[in-house]
Design a protein around this nucleic acid. Structure first.
Lengths: 222, 222
DNA sequence: GATTGTTTCAAACAAACGTTTGAATTTTCA
DNA sequence: TGAAAATTCAAACGTTTGTTTGAAACAATC
C-alpha cells in the first residue's frame, strides 16, 4: 500500500487486467484504484500496452516457493509429483502472492498476445521440463512414448489448471459449501493419486482402501 | 452466407466475441464482417449485450451429435466414456459446427457474466450428469466418494478442456508439426486410457503393451 | 396501385476511450 | 540554500465507443 506510484499502478492494473481483460480495464479505473493521476501511466510506462507487459513481467517473477521443492531430484518421485501439483495449486491461493498473478498469466496463455512467447519461455517451459523429469523418474520410458510423452504431462497439469480456469463453474456445479471443501491439500492428494494410478504407481482412486500407501490426506508422501 | 441479417450478425458477432472478448469486439467491426449497417444491431437485438446473449444461446443449441452417443446406457461403459471424451474433443473441430460456439462458451465459463447460469443449466449440467452416470457404471461407488465424486469427473473433463483452452500453449510447447499430430482420435484414446487406468479399468498408460484390450487406436472399444 | 409493416441506410449523438500537454509540485543533490 | 531533476496534476486532445435518429428502400396485403 505504501509503494510508489509505479508499483501501485502495476498492482491495480494487474488486478484489473486479470479480472476484466485488457480492453475491459480502462486506464481511468486503474489509476483511480492506484490513487495516481491519469498521466502517470504515460510517465512511468509509456502507454497502456507497456503497462500490461510490466504486469506480466511482475507475474512471471513471483514464482511460488512450493513449486521449487518439486525440483529436488533427491526426493522420491511420488513426493516430487505431489509437491509439483501442490505447488501449482497453492500458487493460486498463496496469500503472499497477489491473486492476479496467476489469473493474468492464464488469460495470456488462453488468448496469447505478443507477450505470450516470453511467459512461455520463462515460466511455462521450466515447469514443463521439471514435470517431464519427474514423470520419467516415476515411469521410465514415458518420455519416449508417442509425442515425447507430452500428452501424459498434459493429463497431469490439466487437472490442476482446471481448478484455476473453471473455478466459477465448479462453484456453480457443486454449490458454495461443497466447493469450499476442495482445498489445496485435498485436491493435491486427489490429483496426485489419480495421476499415479494412471501411471501404474499406487492404488486406483476408487475402492475401499483408496488411500495412497506413501501417506494420508494432507500429507506429502516421504 | 446467404442468411438474413440477423443470422449473419450472430455469426460475425460470435466469432468476434469468441476471439477478442466482449469489450474487445466493436460493433462496427462486427457489422462490417456481417455486411450489415451499424443500426442493425439496435434493430434486431436492441443492444450489444443482447446480441452477446443471442450468440450464447445459439452456441448452446448446437450440441455436438457425437456427445449424444455416449448417453446410450446399453453400450459398455468404456465405450460410453470413449464416446463422451471423443464427442467433447470433436465438438471443438466439428466442421458442421462453427468454431466459435465452443470458444465462446469456454470464455463465458472462465469469466462468467450474467448469462453464465443459463449456459450451465442447459449445457454443462446435462453433460456432467451423463459423465457421472458413465463413471458410476465403470466404477460403482465413485458417486459415493468424497464430494459426491465430483473431483473424479473433473479429472476426466479437465484433460479434454485443456486442449480447448490451452491449445496455443500446446502448439508453442510442442512445435507446429508435433502439435498437428494430436488429432481427435489420438487424444480421445489417450485421455480414455489415462482415465480408465486411474479408475483401475484397463492397463496403465506406460509399458510395453499400453494398448487397451478392448480396441486399438482409432477404434472405440466395443 | 395504394397502403401498410418491415428492414436498411447514412448521419449524427453523447459518452468513454487512450493519450498528451505544460505548468505546478516535490525530491534530489551539490 | 538554490538549481536541477523527477514526479504529479488538472485540463484538454483527437478517436473510438455504443447507441439513436429519421428518412429511404423494400416487402406484403388488400
Amino acid at each position: 500500500m505504501a509503494e510508489d506510484a509505479r508499483g501501485r499502478l502495476i498492482d491495480a492494473a494487474g488486478r484489473a487486467f486479470a479480472e476484466r481483460g485488457f480492453e475491459g480495464a480502462s486506464v481511468r479505473d486503474i489509476c483511480s484504484d492506484a490513487g495516481v493521476n491519469i498521466a502517470a501511466i504515460n510517465y512511468h510506462f509509456g502507454d497502456k500496452q507497456s503497462l500490461y507487459v510490466a504486469c506480466l513481467e511482475q507475474a512471471q517473477c513471483s514464482e511460488s516457493r512450493q513449486t521449487l521443492q518439486a525440483a529436488d531430484p533427491s526426493l522420491p518421485p511420488e513426493a516430487r509429483l505431489h509437491g509439483f501439483i501442490s505447488g501449482m495449486l497453492a500458487a493460486q491461493g498463496d496469500p503472499d502472492r497477489p491473486r492476479w498473478h496467476n489469473a493474468l498469466m492464464l488469460r495470456e496463455m488462453a488468448h496469447p498476445t505478443t507477450a505470450a512467447a516470453e511467459v512461455l519461455k520463462r515460466y511455462i517451459r521450466p515447469l514443463a521440463e521439471t514435470l517431464r523429469e519427474i514423470l520419467e523418474q516415476i515411469s521410465p520410458g514415458v518420455s519416449g512414448m508417442s509425442h515425447d510423452g507430452w500428452p501424459v504431462g498434459f493429463s497431469v497439469v490439466s487437472q490442476v489448471l482446471f481448478y484455476a480456469v473453471h473455478r466459477p463453474v465448479v462453484r456453480l456445479l457443486m454449490g458454495e459449501a461443497e466447493h469450499d471443501a476442495l482445498d489445496v491439500d485435498f485436491l493435491a492428494d486427489h490429483i496426485t493419486r489419480f495421476s499415479l494410478a494412471a501411471l501404474g504407481r499406487g492404488p486406483t482412486i476408487v475402492g475401499p482402501s483408496a488411500v495412497p500407501s506413501a501417506g494420508t490426506r494432507k500429507t506429502v508422501p516421504r
